[in-house]
Computed example of a mutant assay.
Amino acid sequence: MSTPPHSAAEVVSPDTCTHLTGADHVASLTAALGGLGEQVDTLDRWGRLIADVLCGSERGRLLAAGNGGSAAQAQHLTAELVGRYRADRPPFSAICLTAETSSLTAIANDYPADELFARQVEAHGRPGDVLVLLSTSGRSPNAVAAARRARECGITVLAMTGPAPNPLAAAADDAVCIDSPWTATVQECHLVALHLLCAGFDAAVLAGPARVPATRLGVAR
């Protein structure tokens, strides 16, 4: 006998089932997005902060990292900054630490696993830069180590995690935490959060008076 789907208002727990039906998944995502909606102002503030760093006289840099699906999302963020999100604007310096395969394999081969991102942070980051770390659990040891190393180097750490409290949120300067027990739901909300951050960044960069010279704007497409 098939099991009837759960109501849209009910979010099942991994403690009571091992997988989500389609209806369960939508209910989980809907509930988590409601919580994310309460953090929109934080993400907009992050966008302005990153604009201050990348458009400042020092022309700072953004670093990003995560594991697994979060690695792909970290790369998504840096692509939006080097390329564009919506509006045409200049490219900005953003490096995804999970995309440097030679560095990753060399570090993993020669150093403890926790150094995977921390060593790259120390190499590429400068005081005043920003590091964005993504972890659906908030407990990834290499992300926590990177956050601590970054703060030692004078780098601002912004974290996107799963439910709080967690070690990464505690190690960061600020965190957006998604209150869901399901990894897929947390990752989906992180993608929305990244787009909200990019929207805030673009609004700050392109606000009048423009933060960047008109001659540096890209050709409209």
Results as ranks from 00 to 15, higher is better:
residue 138 G to R: 00
residue 129 D to N: 10
residue 159 A to K: 09
residue 179 D to C: 02
residue 166 N to P: 07
residue 122 E to C: 11
residue 132 V to E: 01
residue 121 V to Q: 07
residue 160 M to A: 15
residue 179 D to L: 05
residue 161 T to I: 10
residue 161 T to Y: 00
residue 174 D to G: 05
residue 173 D to R: 03
residue 104 L to F: 00
residue 111 Y to T: 13
residue 181 P to R: 03
residue 107 I to N: 08
residue 165 P to D: 01
residue 119 R to H: 08
residue 122 E to V: 12
residue 131 L to P: 03
residue 144 V to P: 05
residue 172 A to C: 06
residue 128 G to R: 01
residue 175 A to I: 07
residue 188 E to N: 14
residue 170 A to K: 00
residue 159 A to T: 13
residue 106 A to V: 12
residue 128 G to Y: 11
residue 107 I to Y: 06
residue 108 A to N: 14
residue 155 I to V: 15
residue 103 S to D: 11
residue 186 V to A: 03
residue 119 R to L: 11
residue 182 W to L: 10
residue 127 P to L: 11
residue 173 D to I: 04
residue 105 T to F: 15
residue 108 A to R: 06
residue 147 A to R: 03
residue 157 V to K: 12
residue 166 N to Q: 03
residue 103 S to K: 04
residue 127 P to K: 10
residue 106 A to M: 12
residue 100 E to A: 08
residue 97 L to A: 03
residue 192 V to A: 15
residue 160 M to E: 10
residue 93 S to A: 15
residue 138 G to H: 09
residue 136 T to V: 14
residue 144 V to A: 05
residue 165 P to S: 06
residue 185 T to L: 04
residue 182 W to C: 00
residue 141 P to F: 07
residue 154 G to N: 14
residue 183 T to N: 01
residue 158 L to G: 12
residue 181 P to H: 05
residue 177 C to V: 02
residue 174 D to M: 09
residue 93 S to F: 00
residue 96 C to K: 04
residue 100 E to K: 05
residue 147 A to E: 02
residue 141 P to Y: 00
residue 188 E to T: 11
residue 151 R to P: 00
residue 191 L to V: 14
residue 180 S to Y: 01
residue 179 D to E: 15
residue 184 A to R: 03
residue 172 A to T: 05
residue 142 N to C: 11
residue 187 Q to M: 03
residue 183 T to I: 10
residue 159 A to C: 12
residue 117 F to Y: 12
residue 124 H to E: 04
residue 153 C to A: 13
residue 129 D to C: 11
residue 116 L to M: 13
residue 105 T to N: 08
residue 188 E to F: 00
residue 133 L to A: 07
residue 102 S to M: 10
residue 149 R to P: 05
residue 96 C to E: 01
residue 145 A to M: 07
residue 134 L to G: 00
residue 179 D to Q: 14
residue 179 D to Y: 04
residue 110 D to G: 14
residue 131 L to W: 01
residue 111 Y to S: 06
residue 191 L to P: 07
residue 101 T to K: 02
residue 165 P to G: 10
residue 101 T to R: 06
residue 146 A to H: 06
residue 187 Q to E: 10
residue 167 P to I: 02
residue 96 C to D: 12
residue 131 L to M: 06
residue 114 D to V: 13
residue 118 A to L: 08
residue 148 R to V: 14
residue 112 P to Y: 10
residue 142 N to K: 11
residue 175 A to L: 07
residue 112 P to R: 14
residue 175 A to P: 00
residue 183 T to W: 02
residue 98 T to F: 07
residue 171 A to C: 05
residue 176 V to I: 15
residue 177 C to F: 06
residue 143 A to I: 01
residue 179 D to G: 09
residue 175 A to G: 06
residue 99 A to P: 03
residue 124 H to W: 15
residue 182 W to P: 07
residue 159 A to P: 00
residue 173 D to M: 09
residue 178 I to L: 04
residue 133 L to G: 09
residue 107 I to H: 04
residue 162 G to R: 08
residue 176 V to T: 11
residue 187 Q to N: 12
residue 178 I to W: 02
residue 97 L to Y: 02
residue 186 V to I: 14
residue 109 N to R: 02
residue 107 I to K: 06
residue 151 R to I: 07
residue 190 H to Q: 09
residue 148 R to M: 04
residue 128 G to P: 09
